[in-house]
């Protein structure tokens, strides 16, 4: 899903503008909710997510893929802003040192995986958790975040004149529908493990979500 350099023609500056706006609001959220903890926490989490993304996982029907982690970060913090921040740093390092995703395409990649991936995961999780329960909601949210982000890539390629819309939507959709299964399963397994081992880290266990600072409440710590 990492768009390389040269594939977005003249459209890439538009995504840079969207990325900068998203980064501005994400930093504002981080200063408000994480204050001085922001820097070490986001930095180390980004390094962890970077390592997680390097793990190749088996996908049913023989192929393989890796986790993106945007949905996981958005659900753990209950904030899509966290996904934007973490994915921006991860994708910047990947583009600059690994050639994975382009420099000019960085804006589009952050918009797709961080902003759209994080926002879809957060809002679908919030919308579904009352009806399905937390874990099924997290699974659907993670799958949707990857699937929709992949379809947006197809639309961006079409807008740039690189790939026809119908073929792009079909091929990206089918491939990422399978990759999304991994994202869904792993997001749920990680959430279950975190809920057992460190429930205070999950924003849904705190009294008020999203707008609460990252110290766990006493009741949760005692759990």
């Amino acid at each position: 899903m990492h768009i390389p350099d040269g594939f977005l023609s003249w459209t890439w500056p538009i995504y840079y503008v969207i990325m900068f706006v998203a980064l501005y609001f994400s930093l504002r959220w981080a200063r408000k909710n994480l204050d001085e903890k922001l820097i070490p926490l986001i930095a180390v989490l980004s390094a962890g997510i970077f390592a997680i993304m390097s793990m190749n996982m088996p996908i049913p029907f023989g192929t393989s893929g890796h986790m993106l982690g945007g949905a996981l970060v958005a659900i753990v913090f209950l904030a899509p802003e966290a996904a934007v921040l973490v994915l921006f740093i991860v994708l910047l390092v990947q583009a600059l040192f690994f050639g994975d995703g382009g420099i000019t395409a960085l804006g589009a990649n952050v918009v797709n995986m961080g902003l759209i991936g994080g926002a879809v995961a957060y809002f679908s999780f919030r919308g579904l958790e009352k009806f399905t329960g937390k874990y099924p909601a997290a699974a659907i949210a993670a799958w949707l975040s990857l699937f929709i982000a992949a379809e947006v890539v197809a639309v961006e390629m079409w807008l740039a004149g690189t790939f026809p819309l119908d073929v792009g939507l079909a091929s990206m959709g089918i491939y990422h529908a399978f990759i999304g299964v991994i994202e869904a399963i792993l997001t749920v397994v990680v959430l279950i493990a975190l809920d057992k081992l460190r429930p205070d880290l999950l924003a849904w266990n705190r009294k008020t979500s999203g707008g609460q600072k990252l110290e766990g409440s006493e009741e949760v710590a005692a759990k």
């Binding site: 180390v44 989490l45 962890g48 997510i49 793990m55 996982m57 397994v189 880290l201």
Partner: peptide, 22 residues
Amino acid sequence: MKQLGYTVAMMFLRAYEQGETI
């Protein structure tokens, strides 16, 4: 997938706790 999930969970947890320690 369960084993891989636990690996990812451990990585995430260690990253988070390391972040707090740092």
